[in-house]
Design a protein around this nucleic acid. Structure first.
Lengths: 222, 222
DNA sequence: GTCTATATGTAGATAGAC
DNA sequence: GTCTATCTACATATAGAC
């Protein structure tokens, strides 16, 4: 039976096995990010991970389970940092809407632009999950809880605002963040011939846009 | 030879043939929008169009050409309306940044939310083109010219603004618009249990967010 | 133009030797 | 755990009769 479905206790998997599994997950993350779920093939993943095809199924299970595994692998790290930052804001007490939005956006943003190709790939995978209703359940499990918390805290602080509009502003912000991770080529194409652009500048630009957009939604709702 | 590659003059294709071709393009638009490029199959498209598989290739060519055909089919209508609105603003003379952004966003937005399932599907296809570098050339041909015009006009009117940041704001706005077309389920999920939400409200929310975001980028750049 | 039939490739997944 | 070999399904695309 494939290990992915095994529930019973296994002891001491070999170092080699552990390393292979890591390589497979990393390779799958890159390939899914580059090719999309349907465009990615188990063969591509195996080749990238330098293992045999059969081992991808052995360690990762069926293709869709492998994808879910990839999404889940980094989701809790993100959620945890988001929650911790929100909790710190609550303790401090004097946060504003921009602080809360940054608390949600920064954890993924800084990782995706930290020159770690795996995290940049993960951002693209989040974009795939967000754009395709087929992964609705995955988004509900891994991302919606903290996002709902943000919406709820904003609505408590700005009781005149329409919750649907606040939720809209958060979704628009996240989609803008993901666009920055997946479509920097488009921004460069529209900027003119030789605009230089560093990651910090792009992030500042994004947060400026989203903070102002959210403020606009909150204020005009009052 | 397949008609899609034929350059010579054809005269009087039958009514039936024309109708079949239309059905194929419409069906392809829906299927590509629902399944993505790789997830869509010629079989699905043929079935949806109620024609034989071979006819899809005959009228649409290879799969990638069919996709490009779908993108091109409605692109000029969009570009034309965008240009006309921009020209009217120029003649009038007293436009602001929000007017220019609306001129770019509204043509697709109103069509996608006009209860025409084909245009809603087309919006999803634009999202696919925008998110995947593989369709870079398609975006460059069909969407970038008018988008560049918008960026350029904004930069002329607000000369202190960084063109890269203005281009960023436009890309963020478009990604937010496409998120509204593709992920209204996410907004509803985050709004709370039973928030009602009509299309006009959602569009107002989007434009509010994007106008405020763009204004934020333009002002803080000064 | 449209049909049936088929050519050719590749996908995901597993069986069973090692 | 990892390998080779293979099964089955389905993909795109075209040939050729009608």
């Amino acid at each position: 039976m494939a290990q992915h479905a095994v529930k019973e206790r296994k002891r001491a998997p070999s170092q080699r096995s552990i390393a292979a599994r890591e390589r497979i997950l990393d390779a799958a993350e890159l390939v899914f990010a580059e090719q999309g779920f349907d465009g990615a093939s188990i063969r591509d993943i195996a080749e990238r991970a330098q293992v045999q095809k059969a081992n991808v199924n052995f360690h990762g299970g069926p293709k869709d389970e492998l994808f879910e595994r990839i999404v889940a692998r980094r989701a809790s790290e993100l959620s945890q940092e988001r929650r911790e930052t929100i909790n710190r804001l609550e303790e401090r007490g004097d946060w504003d809407a921009a602080d809360l939005m940054s608390a949600f956006m920064r954890p993924l943003l800084t990782r995706a632009f930290s020159n770690d190709p795996q995290w940049l790939a993960y951002a693209r995978i989040v974009a795939i999950v967000s754009a395709d209703a087929r992964w609705h359940a995955l988004a509900t499990t891994h991302f919606d809880p903290v996002a709902s918390l943000v919406v709820q805290k904003l609505c408590t602080k700005y009781p005149e605002a329409d919750p649907a509009n606040v939720a809209g502003a958060l979704v628009f912000s996240v989609s803008s963040m993901l666009a920055l991770c997946t479509s920097e080529w488009r921004i460069r194409a529209l900027s003119g011939p030789d605009q230089k652009r560093d990651a910090e500048g792009a992030i500042r630009n994004l947060l400026q846009f989203c903070h102002a957009g959210l403020a606009g939604v909150l204020n005009t709702s009052v």
